[in-house]
Design a protein around this nucleic acid. Structure first.
Lengths: 339, 339
DNA sequence: CTGTTAGCGCTTTCAA
DNA sequence: TTGAAAGCGCTAACAG
């Protein structure tokens, strides 16, 4: 079913059929209706590849993110998908599983695939070779969740958010507050959040503890179990993300501690599920769908204007602390007496 | 950067360059290396749209699913994405939010987008107009999670699985077992699972109760609260999916009931998160990633063979019941005395 | 083993 | 307001 058959059937030229779909105003109303009818009865759908080849515009946005297994990114992708459809774009997502070679591959595939722009969540913008090549390619792109002065980023101020969380916990009376993170090398987000922790502790006049690094999911109970069984165990855990917070709560349970009675736990991301848990997750809420939506909008804008996004075109979205049920004042017995 | 420039630079014809990328064996090794070098230094990437237009093959698979907000589908999409990359395909996902008009739209967009095949999770295969058109279009497609004799489906036997769950609960001593479902009209999955419940109850010689329908997420505490506060409240809840199970546990908590002490709750789907919760979710586990992977493989096979998948080409994957911590024998006080 | 060439389906000047 | 025709970048006969 090509434009040619529609043209023949309608007794007009292919140019006219094309105009009916792309510049309807430039076609006489009668002709237009006629062509539209023929097209409909024939079930004609303009061929996207041909159009892309001709116009050098695919109306497809590439998306590169670590995994859909973490609801943060699933929520974000949902936002991207919605905004894309609304803007007349399709998307082409790739998953990297936090691996740099996969980042590279995805960007290549996308570049060859004629996407009009890309949204990516990279491990580390400062060192990503994929990002480098992309920037050189002159294709519009925007980073989501990352943060870097040389690139347009849509994110929240993670560092500040975590600092505030620590302050909050300190205000509740906590003194031994620990940070739980995934592999620090795996993402700049993790690093920012740890910096926020360090700053928060400093501001509260507390001594920062070594970050509890959970190298992979299954290691959580072990790593945390050890920390929670120590003599001077923390009374509060600041987790770098919600998934980690959920596992920390589990680890606490396995160690015989109740949350929040014996231990407070705070997450980061605001995944929807957090509110359905018992205890409801206390967390830093960012709208993941909005991060996706705004990324699409920036990109659409760049595509329309024909120029890539400058590093200053990024967006820092608002975040907020949601007081759930997983954090409370420390057990009295564990509050050190004033000195 | 087109094939022409590479050809010029390498001093060969475009045909040779094309062969280097598509039929490397048909090119003299020396020429091949030479062209490869030129292509690399020029940063040449073959244009996917042009190739698609010429070959009528896009190496893109369309995906239509309800939402990424439910980890079931996010896990499935992750599986799809992985298998697709492995098979040399890109994917183009659309989200329908369980709306039929969106299903329709997505299928249209995908049809116009020259995808080589589609994986879809529809509301109801029996009534989906989108599915109808797709089948007529002669494009390979496969349904995931759905179940219907006229279409190739990759799924587990939900009905049987739920029947077994009910049997299990009955064996534990439960008599008042209720079914919790989302809108029954929203999906054939929900209907199958409810049928499984009815059958299980019948087999156990128990009286099936009216299904507790939770029309939308936020309504869970209300609907369930009412049921759980009644005089003859259920001692066990069979939930149509894990998200519903998680909310049911929350609702129980709000109603002052502890799970599993006062109430047993079983889910369906086996989302990864279920194992990190306390209590760990008892659920029917299906490998969502595998459902995605197998769908891709079937589709790839169909594309390779040039013919759509017949209705009998589907796959029923294994499921298993995972005994978590959310189900236990009923409280003794609530077990009716033997008659 | 390599080159020439005809389109794939569409948009877009340019003319009429 | 409409049509004729060029060409986007690529692959695949076909010829050599």
């Amino acid at each position: 079913m090509s434009i040619l058959e529609v043209a023949r059937e309608a007794g007009v030229s292919v140019a006219t059929v094309s105009r009916v779909f792309n510049l309807p105003d430039k076609v006489a109303p009668a002709t237009r209706e006629h062509v539209e009818n023929i097209a409909r009865t024939l079930g004609y759908l303009p061929n996207a590849s041909a159009r892309t080849l001709r116009t050098q515009r695919s109306r497809v946005l590439g998306v590169v993110l670590p995994t859909l297994t973490n609801p943060v990114f699933a929520e974000c992708l949902e936002g991207i998908a919605q905004a894309a459809v609304a803007g007349g774009y399709a998307i082409s997502p790739f998953t990297t599983d936090y691996r740099l070679d996969q980042e590279d591959r995805a960007v290549n595939l996308l570049l060859a695939g004629n996407v009009d722009g890309m949204i990516l969540v990279v491990s580390n913008p400062a060192t990503s070779t994929a990002l480098q090549r992309l920037a050189e390619a002159g294709l519009p792109y925007v980073l989501a969740y990352n943060h870097h002065p040389d690139h347009p980023c849509v994110s929240v101020n993670s560092e500040l958010a975590v600092t505030d969380v620590v302050t909050h916990l300190a205000t509740l009376g906590h003194r031994r507050i620990a940070m739980v993170s995934g592999l620090l090398s795996a993402s700049d987000r993790a690093q920012q959040r740890c910096r926020g922790y360090a700053r928060g502790m400093e501001q509260a006049g507390l001594r920062a503890q070594p970050v509890l690094q959970v190298p992979f999911v299954a290691a959580a109970p072990e790593v945390l179990g050890e920390a929670l069984n120590s003599q001077v165990r923390p009374t509060a855990l600041v987790c770098s993300n919600d998934l980690l917070a959920i596992r920390s709560i589990r680890a606490a349970h396995l160690a015989g501690l109740a949350v929040p009675r014996d231990l407070s736990v705070v997450g980061f991301d605001g995944i929807a599920l957090g509110q359905d848990l018992t205890p409801q997750l206390s967390t830093v809420v960012q709208s993941n769908a909005d991060i996706g939506r705004h990324s699409v909008e920036l990109l659409a804008q760049a595509v329309a204007s024909g120029s890539p996004l400058g590093p200053d075109m990024g967006l820092t979205l608002a975040h907020q602390f949601r007081t759930g049920e997983s954090c409370a004042p420390p057990p009295l017995s564990l509050v050190p007496p004033p000195t």
